[in-house]
């Protein structure tokens, strides 16, 4: 069915879509590839890790919510630059961003994830899961690191990552969309462009299905994050009140 769809969409349009999405991605990355290469082996020392671990649960939650809130702004900017997104009604723009921004961030995270030593960039240096011990969310953190390893194994190029994040953002099955058909059309074209990009590199035929097979784990992580946030809010209402406004807006149901 997708091959019939591909025929309808001229390859000229596919290239135009790919270029727009890749350009939008590269322009809205928090870290350039060079920065990440330079930082890749800047690891937290054991003392710095212990300092992170000795932080209070509230302080660590506040710190992480701030990082997520900053990163969300780049995802909003990414979405705005994707052809067709701003033509959607604003209700749907908000729904797609609220439902999809964390999934986009989880995919973007692999650019700052080093599978060789299982570390991720956090506030300027790389560290392992133990950095986040004081959050009290070991299951969530280990799921995120597992996802990072799995996605890194696919060795996505910048182009593939850009198109995959755009396709995930433009998910027509998000609840309460008013024009899901319009979103479906956009996503279809982006998936065709992504398949085209994968084939261009002669990488494994089933690379796209491997990428799509990671979506359930991402959804589980997003739901787990919401559960942890709700639980934290019950225990520490004042701290949760002071979470960054954008973080609260996106994740408060």
């Amino acid at each position: 069915e997708s091959s019939q769809l591909a025929a309808e969409i001229s390859s000229l349009e596919i290239d135009r879509i790919a270029q727009n999405v890749v350009k939008s991605h590269l322009e809205t990355c928090q870290y350039t590839t060079e920065e990440l290469k330079r930082l890749a082996w800047t690891l937290y020392s054991p003392e710095e890790i212990r300092a992170l671990q000795s932080k209070s649960c509230e302080a660590m939650w506040q710190q992480c919510s701030l990082q997520i809130s900053n990163a969300i702004q780049y995802v909003v900017e990414f979405a705005k630059r994707i052809d067709g997104f701003m033509e959607l009604c604003q209700n749907d723009q908000i729904i797609l961003l609220k439902a999809g921004c964390l999934e986009v961030l989880l995919i973007r995270m692999i650019r700052a994830f080093n599978p060789l030593n299982n570390t991720v960039l956090f506030e300027g240096k790389y560290g392992g899961v133990q950095m986040f011990k004081s959050l009290g969310c070991d299951d969530l953190i280990s799921a995120i690191f597992e996802l990072g390893r799995n996605l890194c194994r696919l060795q996505l190029s910048d182009e593939e990552l850009a198109l995959f994040t755009a396709a995930v953002l433009l998910s027509p099955d998000r609840p309460w969309l008013t024009e899901s058909k319009k979103v479906q059309k956009l996503q279809d074209k982006i998936y065709v462009a992504l398949q085209h990009e994968i084939q261009k590199k002669h990488s494994a035929e089933d690379k796209l299905s491997k990428m799509v097979s990671k979506l359930p784990l991402m959804k589980t992580i997003c739901n787990l994050h919401l559960d942890k946030m709700e639980f934290f809010r019950l225990l520490h209402p004042e701290t949760a009140m002071n979470f960054p406004p954008l973080y609260k807006e996106v994740f408060n149901s």
Binding site: Q90, L97, P245, L246, E249
Partner: peptide, 19 residues
């Protein structure tokens, strides 16, 4: 709109300061 005023504002105008 009230419930999502920051998202609305980000969608409307400027991008993050350092982009």
């Amino acid at each position: 709109t009230e419930r999502h005023k920051i998202l609305h504002r980000l969608l409307q105008e400027g991008s993050p300061s350092d982009i």
